[in-house]
């Protein structure tokens, strides 16, 4: 009786030795995990900060919309910027339908048999193939065999092939996040498989699918390897600010390759220009990615579970 009263007067709890130890461990673990987050933030901040500070003198609107001048040592990067945009759009057009439809088939239609397992295994393995190997495949398949020559089309298709496996995986994941009960309920009111997919499964997973597609294609757009043998050129003149400078059958300049060439092959490029090109490439990917994030948030708000 007494002890209970003592306990009450000292507050409801008196931490025992054991509890204190647990609390301490909890604190330490929390701090360690937090430090890890800081650790990954520091390089990011340093990287972006360093880039922007060094690029600052060159970062103007003119830099983006002007063409390279004086042997690419002055002027802007418009041909490379619009070239990358072309590559992204064309590879999206090629990879999104194929990847999404294949993903739907694998998740919704395919039975669990040896064929599906082989395809899934192939997709996962394909995702692990280095980009330079995809590039060589692109040279063989699109540039030479399909007769596209080195062109925007060949380069976009190479990027598309490179991104396909990841798009398929992203689609499958988004689809399998839709609860099975949704489908079952739909079937039970007499809807066919396709009706269920069209009206229930896709609307509930489209945000995930699109986000995956856009993120992946943008990442690929930042790569140099898949385009350097299939359609990227050192220099090509286009009009300042021209929105349609490239025919799909021609080669184009691209930001990632441009960054590579002006930093390794052109002597005397002012340093701020190099950094500004890197910032624009980074910004390009970030803008497209945030578009995907906005799309996702917008659609998630309409989700019902």
């Amino acid at each position: 009786m007494n002890t209970v009263a003592n306990n009450l007067s000292a507050g409801l709890f008196t931490a025992t030795e054991l509890t204190r130890k647990k609390l301490l461990t909890q604190k330490i673990v929390g701090i360690i995990f937090g430090l890890m987050v800081l650790l990954i933030l520091i390089p990011l901040i340093l990287l972006v900060g360093n880039l922007v500070i060094k690029a600052w003198p060159s970062l103007t609107w003119d830099f983006l919309t002007d063409v390279p001048k004086s042997g690419m040592r002055a002027g802007g990067i418009w041909p490379a910027f619009i070239g990358t945009f072309y590559l992204v759009v064309f590879s999206l057009l090629a990879s999104a339908p194929i990847g999404i439809l294949a993903g739907i088939y694998l998740n919704e239609y395919a039975g669990n048999n040896w064929f599906t397992r082989v395809v899934n295994l192939a997709v996962v393995n394909l995702a692990g193939v280095p980009s330079i190997v995809h590039s060589l495949f692109g040279v063989g398949a699109f540039v030479i065999f399909a007769g596209l020559g080195k062109s925007v089309l060949a380069a976009s298709l190479t990027i598309a092939i490179m991104t396909l496996p990841v798009i398929i995986v992203a689609t499958k994941e988004a689809l399998s996040a839709v609860p099975m009960s949704f489908r079952v309920a739909c079937w039970n009111v007499g809807a066919s498989k396709w009706q269920t997919i069209r009206t229930i499964v896709l609307p509930n997973s489209i945000s995930g699918i699109l986000t995956g597609v856009i993120l992946e294609v943008c990442r690929a757009a930042g790569e140099t390897a898949p385009i350097m043998f299939t359609g990227a050129v050192f220099f090509k003149h286009v009009q300042r600010g021209d929105l349609f400078p490239y025919h799909p059958g021609e080669q184009c300049m691209a930001l990632s390759y441009h960054l590579h060439t002006i930093s390794t092959q052109v002597p005397g490029v002012p340093e701020p220009m190099l950094y500004a090109t890197a910032v624009v490439l980074l910004g390009f990917v970030l803008v497209f990615n945030s578009f995907a994030v906005v799309l996702r948030v917008y659609m998630r708000n309409r989700k019902k579970w």
Partner: peptide, 28 residues
């Protein structure tokens, strides 16, 4: 040639002013 790539680029850039109808692609 990588040796010539900058020279070729300068030619391409200047030739645009001489004959705007012709676009020269330069790769190394």
């Amino acid at each position: 040639s990588d040796t010539m790539v900058n020279l070729a680029q300068m030619w391409a850039e200047e030739y645009q002013k001489v004959n705007p109808a012709v676009t020269v692609e330069v790769a190394g």
